[in-house]
Computed example of a mutant assay.
Amino acid sequence: MKTIAIIDRHPILRTGLDFFIKDHFKEVKILGSENVAAFQQSFPRQSLDLVILGFSEHSSTNSLSFVNMLRKQYPKTALIVYDDRPDASLIVPYLKAGVNGYLSKQNSTNKLIECVEIVLEGKRYVCKEVLELILDEYIIENKALPANSFPPLTPREYEIAKSLIQGIKTSEIAKVFGRKLGTISAMKTSIFKKLKVDNIVKLREMMTVS
């Protein structure tokens, strides 16, 4: 029997994942908790086959430390990050820290099941949307940026930022760049974090001043 921990602050999501995983894997034990500290307190000596670590937009600031904490306590346990808003700048650090699977919560539950199956086989899994973010962050960044652009942004992020301040909806931006809506939303979040703004008005003001 496999033992899987689901750590996520949203109880409805934990309950839903519990149902889907038990429906797919007949021999499985699910342990749920709202955060890493609470899980360690409730199950201090529990042996685990897999941890699904869910992140929301509000928990991402400490997310890498949570990964390192779990890796230290459960060095041989497979770890999947299930992220609400993937941040391109954190994806590679997650993988280097020992994350075995990484996917966006905007993927279907079937994709999560696929990720669980592959990771439990000892392989790595990264969803398509996250792979696109990695490509934009680490390959396309070698292209030249305009002289008045922002150094923290990749060329793709800069183009998306320009579209955002022009009032173009994320759904339209996704069509223009041939990306899924979830990918553009994740890149928008990354842009806001890098430039330390929290809305389009502030983004427009910053880019206009530049």
Rank of each mutant, 00 (worst) to 15 (best):
E114Y: 00
S104M: 03
L13M: 12
S104E: 03
N62Y: 05
V92D: 13
A88G: 10
I12N: 04
V92L: 13
F19C: 09
K111I: 10
F25T: 02
P11Q: 00
P86S: 13
I21F: 15
Y82L: 11
N62R: 04
D23W: 06
K26V: 12
Q46F: 14
L90M: 14
R45K: 15
D23A: 15
I7E: 00
P93D: 03
I21G: 02
L50V: 09
K22Q: 14
S33A: 15
P11A: 00
C115E: 03
D87M: 02
G32L: 10
A97H: 06
L17P: 07
S60E: 11
R14I: 06
P11M: 01
V116H: 14
L70D: 01
L48A: 02
E57Y: 05
G32H: 08
I12L: 11
R45I: 14
R71G: 01
N100Q: 05
A78H: 07
A38C: 13
V28H: 10
S59V: 08
T77F: 10
F43P: 12
G101E: 01
I80S: 05
E34A: 11
L79C: 05
R45N: 15
S65D: 07
N62I: 02
I12W: 15
G101W: 01
E114P: 09
H24C: 06
G16W: 13
V36N: 02
T109V: 01
E114N: 11
N68F: 07
D23Y: 09
F66S: 05
D87N: 07
K29V: 07
F19W: 02
N35I: 11
K111G: 12
Q73W: 14
Y102R: 02
F55W: 04
I91D: 11
S108F: 06
K76H: 15
L79H: 04
L95I: 06
R85F: 15
E34Q: 14
N107G: 10
V67T: 08
F55Y: 10
K105F: 01
K26R: 08
R14S: 08
Q46W: 14
I113C: 12
T15N: 12
V99G: 04
G101K: 00
V116Q: 08
P44I: 04
I80H: 01
Y74M: 13
T109L: 05
I113K: 06
G101Q: 00
R71N: 06
F43K: 11
S47C: 10
Q40G: 10
L64Q: 06
L90T: 12
P75Y: 09
Q41E: 08
T15K: 13
V116R: 08
L112K: 01
L50H: 03
K22S: 11
L17F: 09
Y94V: 14
T109H: 03
G54V: 03
D87P: 08
Q46G: 08
G101N: 00
K72Y: 10
L64I: 12
S65R: 03
T61D: 14
F66W: 07
Q73S: 15
H24K: 04
L103F: 08
P75C: 01
I52A: 02
P75G: 05
F55L: 08
Q40L: 14
Q73D: 13
Q106A: 04
V81G: 06
L31F: 15
T77V: 01
A38R: 14
P44E: 01
D84H: 14
E114S: 11
L95G: 07
S60Q: 11
S33V: 09
Y82H: 06
G101I: 03
Q40R: 13
S65H: 10
H10Q: 10
N35D: 15
F25K: 01
S104Y: 00
R71F: 06
E114K: 04
